Amino acid sequence: MFNLTSDQIKKSNAVHTSREIHQQPVVWKELVTDLLEQQETFKGFLTSIYKKHDTVRVILTGAGTSAFVGDTLVPELARQNQQNVQFESIPTTDIVSNPTEYLFKEIPTILVSFARSGNSPESVATVTLGQEIVTDFYQVVITCNKDGQLAKNIQGDDKSITLLMPEKANDQSLAMTSSFTSMTIAAYVLFTEDVFTKDVATQVITSAEQLIERLGNTVDEVLGFDFERIAYLGSGLLAQLSHEAALKMLELSGGQVVAIHESSLGFRHGPKSILNDKSAVVLFMSQDPYTRKYDLDILQELAAAKSGMKIVALTETKDEEVEKLADWVISVNTGTESLSSDFHLALLYIIFAQALALKKSIQLGITPDNPSPDGAISRVVKGVTIYDYKK
């Protein structure tokens, strides 16, 4: 598994993290099958709300990685947007501290809560605030834990639905991996106007299976360069995905690797100053011909720089121009058909970021399943005080 033996995985305390990254195609298969069976019910729930109101606001929310699910999805869902549906991504950590800036009484709202455990205090508090402030308030809980507080709280509520992820998606490692991709797929299937058909899903899953099996050698080559800083770049929803990629490296390296994220165009506006001869840049390249031009521009600029940094480029298919510029190139689509959007690429690109963070963690002598033994961060956040809200 990623060029690691069972003994190495056990010795490094990486059993959960390695398994949860590796299992994602299997989990996705189960998830897609379940969702397609229930799709009519879920879609009917949304359609009834859309028909009832002239305008509907859909807030995708969560904390940390769960918030980045919404960030990654919103550009694609907004592109497909029905005329009376507005998609926004707002972290629970923002809503809880400033509810009146994000929740509005007179605007019908569907709150989509992404949650691995469903017990994060900010997630539970956000729902309470929504119920208190918004007159027409609906909930979609997308969670990996049927026993979590979020799922329990809406039992019997006809203005709410729960999408439960496969049991394997309830990651036991501190870092969220299969839970992130599973909840992302679930929300996409629920809200997309384009049907996530069995054919498309099969192509993405098959590509993921093959990517996982051949990724180990490239990751090891990248780790042969002893980077201390890493920047993840992309455009559109891939720029949002880069936030999750950077967080995985930050979490699993115990903060020893400085990890940032930025858009391909935004990188020049200050963040580029992070680069030195101990830096790696990972570029998530778009499949859209227009957007890809901007990704190529920054790739060319980075490749021409007189420094010791290294570049990893992820792209849909083999590209000779990219291969001339980057130190390592990873093509992710092994199917005969082109993928229809960057959303599909995002599911494949993030696997590389997860695997790189896993093996960097082991290289640094950190235990991936618990990279924060001092309790500075934990699987379910602790130490949060929720204050009473008074209108």
Rank of each mutant, 00 (worst) to 15 (best):
F114C: 02
I260K: 10
A326I: 06
S120Q: 06
K52C: 07
I21E: 06
P166H: 10
R379Q: 04
I260T: 12
T192D: 08
A313Q: 09
P121C: 01
S66N: 09
S340F: 09
E167W: 00
S279C: 08
E321S: 05
Q82V: 02
E262D: 15
V141Y: 11
N81C: 07
E337Q: 14
K29M: 08
V329F: 03
S178I: 06
D171C: 06
L36C: 05
L174H: 04
V200P: 00
N81Q: 13
S113N: 09
T334L: 03
M176G: 03
K293H: 13
Q86H: 13
D388I: 07
F2M: 07
T126Q: 06
D136N: 15
L250F: 13
T100S: 11
A175C: 11
A313H: 07
P368Q: 09
A280N: 10
L364M: 11
S338E: 14
T5C: 00
K391G: 05
V332I: 12
T72P: 03
V281W: 04
Q131Y: 03
K278H: 15
V282Y: 04
Q23V: 12
K198C: 00
S178Y: 06
A187F: 02
N81A: 14
G270S: 09
N145A: 06
E40W: 05
L174P: 00
T93W: 06
S235K: 12
P271L: 10
T192G: 08
S331P: 05
Y389K: 08
P371R: 04
V96P: 02
I185N: 02
G270M: 09
E88D: 07
S242Y: 01
L237H: 03
K248S: 01
Q300R: 15
I185Q: 00
T5K: 01
I212W: 00
I377P: 00
Q256L: 13
T55K: 15
T218G: 03
R19H: 11
S48A: 15
